[in-house]
Design a protein around this nucleic acid. Structure first.
Lengths: 212, 212
DNA sequence: TGACAATGTGACCACATGATCATATAATAA
DNA sequence: TTATTATATGATCATGTGGTCACATTGTCA
């Protein structure tokens, strides 16, 4: 956690530092991201930085915590209305909400995308203080719940499905890169929604021609 | 491409350099991977390194070329017998062959896994001289072919399915990390095969309970 | 043997990194 | 005003980076 000094800072200065850090950490992995660059971008002296943060990792964990908190807050409303929906509607809502989140907070989304690429295990485990892995268990919970209700074919492997669903986010990113050359949730909103539906169609109905 | 000097080297020395480089580039991204470390590991002087390679990128592209060549050679036999197989059998063979490849050449597989994480666009495009993207077009080809034969439900979006299939490789990796804590194709070969079948089951049949 | 080319070598360069610290400045309180 | 505390600063440190280069070593042919 940052020092008290950091939180005593005027709001604009503090948020300038935060956004500079988010910018840096979303463009490069932890090792490549540069404290110097963050200082330059936010116009603070090197010495000041180390008065606010114990070290680089301290800042990184703090930034990631902000992103995770924001994401949880954003998704909490979705989870609340889950019990009224079918499994397809649940998944659909979840992914569309994910797209919406990335559109509203592209910086946070890029941060998460970068985090999935992170190689340094000690850095990863410093961020995961049970914060991140919950998305996996959320899927497993939904799956088992739906299985109990008979919504899912019992022959489906829960773990396989869970991992498949987790990867759908980055698949949507790849789709955008393939289509527009860059990750941009602003343009072609409709196309993205259709693509999400295409993916869910495959997962729910399979690809095999039924001849029925 | 490396200098002629490099290829004049005694075989054991040359392959020592190659394996040292593969080791380094499979453990860290391009930026973090260190020329110094590669020199130390392979017991050559810094000066020698730069007599063999124009620069760091020259070596990296060379190493990746080796990996891609090996992979193509490994998979060529598979493609040859495709026409005798159904789509499910084709996919199944493709992924099991992928698992086999990763087991036989874990270094190459790790190299590829690392490459997918690469941030530096100039480094990526230096490797992709149309060499890499072919896996995507292979899937698209298979899909359209199967659609023409009526094997695939025509409502399935080809691009969505293609991207889904591309991600299955890393999903298998995630499965192993989830199960064994590390990417290791040696142990539990049977379990991995079963998992591949679970994934293919979902993709072919969907998850929805049919009540039929 | 001597001459010439091919290889090997590690000190060295400029630069960037994360982090430190003595000092300067500002803010507050007596 | 003075004393005290909180904050800002950038030169400096040790270390690592990719890359260079003058020189030493080796191999080859006459």
């Amino acid at each position: 956690m940052p020092q008290e000094t950091f939180f005593n800072l005027p709001d604009d200065k503090r948020s300038l530092i935060i956004s500079a850090a988010m910018d840096e950490f979303s463009k490069a992995d932890y090792n490549t991201a540069s404290v110097n660059q963050i200082c330059n971008k936010s116009n603070i002296a090197k010495g000041s930085f180390y008065q606010y943060f114990a070290d680089k990792l301290d800042l990184y964990v703090y930034i990631m915590t902000l992103a995770i908190e924001e994401k949880i807050k954003f998704f909490s409303s979705v989870i609340a209305e889950f019990h009224t929906l079918s499994l397809l509607e649940q998944f659909r809502l979840l992914f569309l909400k994910g797209v919406e989140f990335a559109k509203k907070y592209p910086q946070y989304a890029a941060l998460g995308e970068q985090f999935t690429k992170e190689n340094d295990e000690s850095v990863k485990s410093a961020v995961i203080k049970e914060g991140e892995k919950q998305s996996e268990s959320l899927f497993l919970q939904m799956i088992d719940n739906a299985k109990a209700k008979g919504e899912i074919d019992s022959r489906v492997d829960s773990l396989a499905l869970s991992l498949l669903l987790q990867s759908l986010n980055s698949i949507v990113n790849k789709y955008m890169i393939d289509k527009f050359g860059t990750v941009n949730y602003e343009q072609n909103e409709e196309g993205i929604n259709d693509f999400v539906d295409s993916l869910l169609y495959i997962i729910f109905n399979g690809i095999q021609n039924k001849f029925d």
